[in-house]
């Protein structure tokens, strides 16, 4: 699904990613953990095609295609989805119309006709229910005045509607109370299948109790310094990132 080889990326001349290697197969969930500033969000942004970052070395192969030269929208059309750590507020654009435009532009790219209105409504309703979102909420301006939990729930709702092949969840747990965390995780788990894959970026092990990963990677200073199974997350929670530093040094 996704194969990242020796990826280096920088912003304004400062190197953030210093040689990332990662392979993700369909059906897998990978967690990426690490302290603040280790490059977790940068990795997510670079995969999604954020143009502020310059890839200086390495490859990002997505479904057997190097996607580095593709625009963010082209990557989305191929099935990459990024759930933002800080979803942007866009006054004047309702959630429903945003999602409708996103669906139809994706279909256009796939040479499909726009989705019929009835079908669209049904899809939106079904996914809103999954994320326990009130339909009234969907006529509000995108993220404007949403609580932290509402924003994240809305991100996962968009993911549910767009059905990506690869979803990167960038600190989806931050700003969530325990109920919202349950709803969001439940949504993600229901969407898991053998053909899609998830990258869950998180600071804390807490989220991984709900979304159980197949692999856990620790990112530090722009490199994956340790990989393991979900037990690694518990170990980290218990011993802290300093422990990893020591391990790596040794």
């Amino acid at each position: 699904m996704l194969h990242i080889k020796d990826l280096h990326a920088s912003i304004e001349g400062k190197e953030i990613l210093k040689g990332i290697n990662l392979e993700i197969k369909p059906g897998e969930v990978h967690a990426i953990m690490g302290p603040n500033g280790s490059g977790k969000s940068t990795l997510a942004s670079v995969i999604a095609g954020q143009e502020d970052y310059e890839v200086t070395q390495g490859e990002i192969i997505f479904r057997n295609e190097d996607i580095q030269e593709l625009d963010p929208e082209e990557r989305a059309h191929k099935g990459v989805f990024l759930s933002f750590q800080y979803p942007v507020e866009i006054p004047g654009v309702s959630v429903t119309n945003f999602i409708r435009t996103a669906i139809n532009e994706t279909r256009k790219a796939q040479k499909l006709d726009p989705m019929p209105a009835g079908e669209m409504l049904k899809l939106i309703r079904e996914k809103a229910e999954l994320l326990e979102i009130d339909m009234k909420f969907l006529s509000r301006s995108l993220n404007e005045g949403f609580s932290g939990g509402e924003k994240k729930r809305n991100e996962i709702f968009q993911m549910a509607v767009l059905e990506p092949k690869l979803a990167i969840l960038d600190e989806t747990d931050s700003g969530l109370d325990i109920d919202a965390l349950r709803v969001v995780s439940n949504g993600v788990n229901k969407l898991r299948n053998k053909d899609n894959a998830f990258v869950v970026i998180t600071h804390y092990q807490r989220l991984l109790d709900y979304i159980v990963p197949d692999y856990v990677h620790v990112l530090m200073d722009g490199k994956i310094v340790k990989s393991g199974t979900k037990e690694l997350a518990y170990e980290l929670e218990e011993k802290g990132y300093d422990w990893i530093k020591e391990v790596v040094k040794a």
Binding site: Q50, R75, F84, I90, T101, A102, E105, L162
Partner: peptide
């Protein structure tokens, strides 16, 4: 905001139009 819209599959030109429309709303 432009990147946000584009990351959802809305091409640049269309994303700009959406934001301009929202601005005029």
């Amino acid at each position: 905001a432009l990147f946000y819209l584009r990351s959802r599959g809305i091409p640049k030109k269309e994303a700009e139009a959406v934001l301009m429309y929202a601005f005029a709303n």
